[in-house]
Simulated scan of single mutants.
Amino acid sequence: MSYTILLVAHIAVLGYWLGSDLCINSEYRFITHRPDIDFAARDAMTDHLMDVDQHVRYALILQLTLGAMLASHLAYLPPQWFWAMPVVGAAWIALVEVAHRQRRSATGERLAQIDRWVRYAIALALLLAAFGAFDTMPLWLRIKLGLFAALIGCGVIIRFFLMRHFRIWAEMREQGPGPERETIIRTTYRQATMVLLALWTCVAAMVLLAIFKPI
């Protein structure tokens, strides 16, 4: 596979990722800020929101996979990584997909927890690389990897906000919405969006580093 094809795919996945994020945040805001709409309709939209949210998860995995393949192609990583990362990426996507499909079961909860631990492990590996685990990497790439670790951290924090949202949402489904619960889910939306802005800042910094390679 040529460097150009990998690079174009890497850039295309970035657009896919940011576009998905914008759609998800827009739908999430609509759901949390429209108490005048029938709750059953909002509940159906929330279920759809989680389907759309899968695209962001796919994009993160694809971006990491393609980035590692590019780094291997440029000899910043060992050559074995070029073929190993697609296998790792495919396995991770399978985990994310099964966890999503089983999300209403105990098995789905366990798989989601495994996925979070995978993210912690990858963030740690990125930080190790950023601080010199691979002496073949230039400084700009190490900083980029550190930002990618921070980005994964932002994503995990957003997941915890969503878990809080769904706890309140389950109460609303069982007992009906009310002003206090509506206020909580709107506040949770705002907090998650602030973390999302930090995530986008990391992405913007990573893009600038990749383009200009200043250091």
Rank of each mutant, 00 (worst) to 15 (best):
G153Y: 14
V88T: 06
A123D: 14
L111Y: 10
L139Q: 15
A123T: 14
L66K: 08
A90Y: 04
W140P: 00
F166I: 07
L128M: 10
A130F: 08
M163L: 11
I143P: 05
V56D: 07
R110E: 10
L151C: 09
E97H: 12
V96P: 01
R103Q: 09
F161W: 15
A94G: 06
T136S: 14
L151G: 02
I152R: 11
L151I: 05
M69K: 07
R159F: 03
T136R: 15
R57P: 01
M163G: 03
V56T: 09
T107I: 06
V98N: 13
P86K: 05
P78L: 11
H73E: 06
A59D: 09
R164Y: 02
M85G: 04
M85Q: 14
Q102P: 00
M69A: 03
F148M: 12
Y58T: 02
R142W: 11
V96D: 14
A59C: 05
I158Q: 13
I143G: 01
A90S: 07
L126E: 10
W140Y: 10
V96M: 10
I158K: 12
S72K: 12
G155D: 09
A99L: 05
A91H: 12
I114M: 08
I157K: 06
T136Q: 15
T65E: 09
A90W: 04
L151R: 11
I158W: 06
H100G: 00
L126N: 08
